[in-house]
């Protein structure tokens, strides 16, 4: 109950922050640009719209996830609005969980709107329903899962560092997440404890390699339902892990 109350309030705060809408508008503009590009290059309109659209959803989604994730929590600590919340019968884990649920809802709606914009653009370039559209939605769903992980990381970092640093850390991990597999391959090619440590570190990073299906989807490839299940479970467990770490960091944090 407490968690939901905090989640609702977080969602309301994000929704009243008009900053949140501008990326959505921008994504729609990007999709519009994609349509223009698609008309210039013959034969690959669909492909260009999907590739550019999914890139825009990722890019703006990540910006919102990091801005909102670090902003709302670190701001509560900095501006001390937290004092009057934590002096009530609210446990610290409830605060972290409530914040996350609120942020996740914000991201889901934000990403969902962008996904709908993308579908509308697709409808424009290739009228009539196509079964491949469903895979585009799955690609958007994978992006949303990535955003949830990034948002969890932003929340974790903002429990012990400044909003700016937390933002930098989360963005760095988002980038690393796309290279985690390559990094692990490099680390595994060597031996010794340094390499083993590096391999371990790549497991702590988010591993996004299985989430990036944009290129395949643009070519009308389907996505195995097993991959959907696998990615969903991974996103939940990774986010769970990060949130537990955030709860631990926050429980020990002194609010000066």
């Amino acid at each position: 109950m407490t968690v939901l109350t905090i989640a609702r309030s977080t969602f309301r705060e994000a929704a009243r922050d008009r900053v949140l809408y501008s990326p959505a508008v921008f994504a729609v503009l990007m999709t519009g640009a994609a349509i223009l590009v698609g008309q210039v290059s013959i034969g690959i309109e669909r492909q260009v719209v999907i590739n550019l659209g999914l890139a825009a959803v990722t890019f703006f989604g990540v910006i919102v996830a990091i801005l909102v994730g670090t902003g709302l929590v670190a701001k509560e600590i900095q501006k001390r609005t937290l004092y009057t919340v934590l002096s009530r019968p609210v446990e610290r884990w409830q605060f972290v969980a409530g914040k996350f649920v609120g942020l996740a809802g914000t991201l889901a709606i934000n990403g969902g709107l962008m996904g709908l914009g993308l579908l509308a653009a697709l409808r424009y370039v290739s009228p009539g329903f196509s079964g491949a559209d469903a895979w585009v939605l799955v690609a958007v769903y994978f992006i949303l899962l990535q955003l949830l992980m990034v948002c969890g990381l932003a929340l974790l970092f903002s429990t012990f560092s400044s909003p700016l640093l937390a933002g930098v850390f989360s963005f760095a991990l988002f980038v690393l997440g796309n290279f985690a597999q390559e990094l692990r391959d490099v680390a595994q090619s060597g031996a010794g404890w340094v390499h083993r440590l590096m391999v371990g570190a790549t497991y702590l990073m988010p591993n996004f390699s299985a989430f990036n299906v944009a290129a395949g989807v643009a070519h009308g490839e389907s996505i195995a339902s097993l991959l959907i299940l696998h990615n969903s479970i991974y996103a939940v467990t990774y986010t769970g892990m990060v949130l537990c770490a955030a709860v631990l960091a926050f429980e020990w944090r002194e609010l000066q």
Partner: peptide, 17 residues
């Protein structure tokens, strides 16, 4: 945590949402 149900707290120079 139960104790907080019976407390009221006004911080110094309070700031709210």
């Amino acid at each position: 945590p139960r104790v907080h149900a019976y407390l009221g707290f006004l911080p110094e120079q309070p700031y709210f949402y």
